[in-house]
Each structure stands twice: as C-alpha cells, then as structure tokens.
Simulated assay, not measured.
Amino acid sequence: MAKPLLLVFALFVMGGLYAILAPSDVSSADTTKSQQVEAGRKLFAVGCSSCHGLNGQGSSQGPTLVGVGAAAVDFQVSTGRMPLAYPQQQAPQTKVSYNDDEIAALAAYVQTLGPGPEIPSASQYQPSGLTDEEVARGGELFRTNCSACHNAEGAGGALPNGKYAPSLVGVSDKHIYEAMLTGPQQMPVFSDQVVTPKDKQEIIAYLQTLHERPNNGGLALGGIGPVSEGLWTWIVGLGVLVAFAVWIAAKGAKAK
C-alpha cells in the first residue's frame, strides 16, 4: 500500500513542480501570441477583407493571402502600399495607415492562414563586416538579377502596361530584403534557395555603398541610364543637325 501512495505522491510533486517552473513563460508567450493574432484578425476584417476576403481567400478585387507569409504583409503595409485606396495598375508607396503593433498583428494573423516567409530579423537583413570582394559580388548579383528593372543604380524604371520598378534610393534594408523574399506585385520571388540570405545581404551592402557615394559633379540625368541619355542625345544632337541644315540652306539661298 505504501508504494502506490508513494508513487502518487511523487507524481503529484513532479506535476506541481512542472506547473510552477516550466509552463509559465510558455503559457504567457502563447497567450500573447493568441491575443496578437486575434487583434490582427479584427484589423483584417475591417481594413482588408473587402478585397482579400474575410478569411484571406482572395476575391475579384484582391489576391489570396493564404501562404504569402508575415514578411509580405510587413512589406506591403509598412510601406503604405496597403490598404489600397482604389484599384490601379500598381500600388504606390504612400503614407502608412497602421502603427508598428497593428502591422505586427496583421502579419501574425496572415501567417496563420498558411505557411510563408517570416519577417526577417535585423541580423538577416543588416549587412555587417562584409569585405570589399563580397560587396563587389553583391553588385554582380544586382546587375544580373535586378538592374533590368531597377536600373544599374537602383533608380527605378518603367515597365510594360503602366507599371514601374520603384527607386531603391532611401529604401530600408528590411524592406529590400522582404521584397526579394516575397516578390511584391510584378517582382519575381527570390527565395532563399535561389538567392541565399548571404546573397541578399551582399546585394543590400552594394546598394548601401552605391547610394552613399559622394556626388563628384556632373549632370547625372536622373541616374536612369540610356533613357535620359538617349533623350538628350536626340534633343541636343538632332537639334544641332537641324540648326546646321537650316543655316546651310539659308546661306545657300543668300549666295544665289
């Protein structure tokens, strides 16, 4: 009889110790997470469901959000691209409608709809301690994968059907990383399997170096390469030729 009672007592003590020592932090974290998700669900129902559906399933007005992940929500909402005021070709960057806590709650809720990329930590998107060779490699990666749309200087550029690649000047490291990770709008997704986290850091470091370099003078023409350069070539070059043609014609007429 003593052994069963001793066993019951031991189990009771172990259960009590476990309840006191272990689950408190876990339970608190779970409760906080649940509250955040619930807050995000309410915000979503008011501000997002009219386009994306009450359960994020999508509609004729907006795509499904199932599986896009928290990173996509953080990028779109914290840059003011969402919520979109009215349908248009491309969501522009505007004034942010939510504070940081509300954005985190929306992202946490959408993450529960289906697995997707999480919001990156500062250690992931902030390049530090990279060598000149690694920064140069970031430039190669950028020119290979990004410059066709964003231009070699990251100044942005026009795309078909009224769309455009936005300028990357002044864009935060976090948002550049999230954009590569999630592929907003017409941008392709550069997953960690295609462009590794280290590759992404090197690209960000290259952009930092590019945009922090001093202006040594000269006319940059917007930094958008052959578009503005070609325009000025036509205006100045063709203009000079026309002027010469008029001058020659006028001089020839006087000679007669």
Rank of each mutant, 00 (worst) to 15 (best):
P127V: 00
N161P: 08
T131E: 13
G139C: 11
V96Q: 05
C149P: 15
R137H: 10
V96N: 06
K163I: 10
Q111S: 05
I119A: 02
S172Q: 11
Q89R: 03
A91G: 08
T131F: 09
D100W: 00
L106T: 00
Y98M: 10
S172E: 12
R143N: 15
A91I: 09
T144I: 08
N145V: 10
Y98V: 11
A158Q: 12
A158H: 11
V169W: 03
G139D: 02
V135Y: 01
D132Q: 14
P115S: 06
L168T: 10
Y164Q: 14
S123I: 03
E102S: 02
G114R: 01
L113I: 09
S121A: 14
A136L: 12
C146P: 15
S123C: 02
V135H: 01
E134T: 05
S128I: 00
V171F: 08
P115Q: 05
G162Q: 12
P115W: 01
N161Y: 12
N145G: 06
V135M: 11
G129D: 13
F142I: 04
A165Y: 05
A107W: 06
I103W: 06
E133G: 13
S128G: 14
D100T: 14
E133A: 15
A158F: 15
K95N: 03
G116D: 12
L159V: 07
P120G: 01
G157Q: 05
A105E: 02
L106I: 03
L141Y: 07
Y109C: 04
P120E: 04
A108N: 07
L113T: 03
P120H: 04
G157T: 05
Y109H: 07
A91N: 11
G162R: 08
L141M: 13
S172R: 11
G138W: 10
E102P: 02
P120Q: 03
Q124P: 09
S123G: 09
A148R: 03
D100K: 14
Y125I: 08
L113A: 08
P92K: 00
Y125E: 07
S147M: 08
V96E: 00
L159M: 15
A108W: 10
Y109A: 01
S123D: 12
A108R: 03
A122W: 04
A155F: 13
Y109L: 05
A136D: 12
E153F: 02
G116S: 06
T131K: 09
K163G: 05
E118T: 06
R143Q: 15
Q89L: 12
P120N: 02
P127C: 02
A165C: 11
Q89E: 14
Q111G: 01
Y109R: 04
G154M: 13
S121I: 10
E153I: 00
V169T: 12
L113D: 05
G162I: 14
A104V: 06
E134N: 10
D101P: 07
E153A: 11
A108G: 08
C149Q: 10
V110F: 06
N99M: 08
G170I: 07
D132F: 09
I119V: 15
E133Q: 14
D132E: 15
N161S: 09
V96W: 00
S172N: 08
D132N: 13
P115E: 08
P117S: 09
C146A: 07
S121P: 06
P166N: 01
S167N: 12
N151W: 03
Y125T: 04
N99C: 07
K95M: 05
A107C: 10
Y98K: 01
G162V: 13
G157Y: 03
V96Y: 00
